[in-house]
Simulated scan of single mutants.
Amino acid sequence: MWSKTMTTTTEAPQAETLRLVDGGMNFDGVQALEDVSISVNSGEVVGLIGPNGSGKTTTLNLVSGMLQPTTGRVMLGDKELTRMSMRKRARIGIVRTFQSVRVFGRLTVAENIEVAALGCGLRRHEARELTEELLADLNLESVANTAAESSPAGLIRTIGIARALATRPKFLLLDEPAAGQNESEAVELIEAIRNISRRRACGVLLVEHDMSVVMSTCDRLHVLDSGRTVTAGLPQDIRHDPQVVEIYFGKRH
């Protein structure tokens, strides 16, 4: 229902690219990120991976506007966003989730999603249609009428993703979306996000530690270590890259 409504009222979304160009971040003399360039195209899922402390969350913070880079630029197509606030970026369709998600506990799962849709300007019937679609897409229908406060941690993260998607983002930045779920649940969730991404031409940049999940669900991977890019490319190429193998399975693992 939602897709039919949207096609009668709006034009097809225009393909865009969100980029961090030569991004660097210095915290009181500590170089957390150095010369990192990463891009996400409309409709693709890019996985951002690396060991703890490699700069993954810092990269998300720069792209989302939570932090402004010490060096480098953030670009959406030809438009520079480097000094644009996180709130303004969200308004133009760059939305992120966090590892810690806060829900409206006394509202149901469905109501949590609908509130987000209403908050970005949809009419009530549109918000409900979109909520129903997202509940189905993310396999939340069985808990739709359950109070969000009674949800386990993994489900709360999924509710947070659904709320972010309810704002109809152009680009969605996800920080460990599958944490707290087993491998099959994690793969199912990321595959659902990938399908939504392609259907709505929404670019996704996700941080995820589970290599089996990112290898099976991401279109491209970007690997960080000690604040620098190690390599980037297709999952099948990254899997056998000697530097990546050393990072995950070598002496530093």
Rank of each mutant, 00 (worst) to 15 (best):
N112W: 12
E185R: 11
I49W: 03
L174H: 10
G29M: 09
S226D: 07
T5C: 04
E111I: 05
A127G: 04
G119M: 14
V213R: 09
A178S: 15
M75V: 10
V109A: 12
L134Q: 11
I113W: 06
L174I: 12
G55W: 01
Q31C: 06
N61P: 05
E129L: 08
S151F: 11
S197L: 09
V245S: 01
C202Q: 08
M75T: 05
G77P: 02
V214C: 06
G47D: 01
R83G: 04
S100C: 02
V95K: 05
A147M: 06
V30T: 15
F27I: 13
H253V: 04
H209P: 00
D78M: 02
E188D: 12
M84R: 12
L62W: 13
H209N: 02
F171R: 01
G53D: 05
N52A: 03
G43V: 08
N139A: 14
M211H: 01
E133G: 01
F171D: 02
T167K: 05
A127S: 09
G55C: 08
A162S: 08
S142L: 12
G250A: 11
Q31P: 02
E246I: 02
T71L: 11
H253C: 05
R123I: 10
E80S: 13
L206F: 06
L76D: 10
T9S: 14
C120T: 15
V207W: 01
E126C: 03
V207E: 01
L165K: 01
Q68L: 05
A147Q: 11
A116F: 15
E34W: 15
V45D: 04
K4F: 09
A162K: 09
S216A: 14
Q236V: 01
E149Q: 08
K79R: 12
L62R: 06
P152C: 06
R157D: 07
G77L: 05
S85D: 04
A144V: 05
R163N: 07
S85V: 08
R198E: 05
T146Q: 15
P242E: 11
F27C: 10
S100A: 10
T108R: 05
M86V: 13
T158V: 15
V103G: 05
D225N: 14
T10G: 07
A201L: 06
K88R: 14
A117D: 04
T8F: 12
P152M: 11
A136P: 00
D210N: 15
V187I: 14
L76G: 07
E183M: 11
V74C: 04
V46P: 00
I190F: 13
V21M: 08
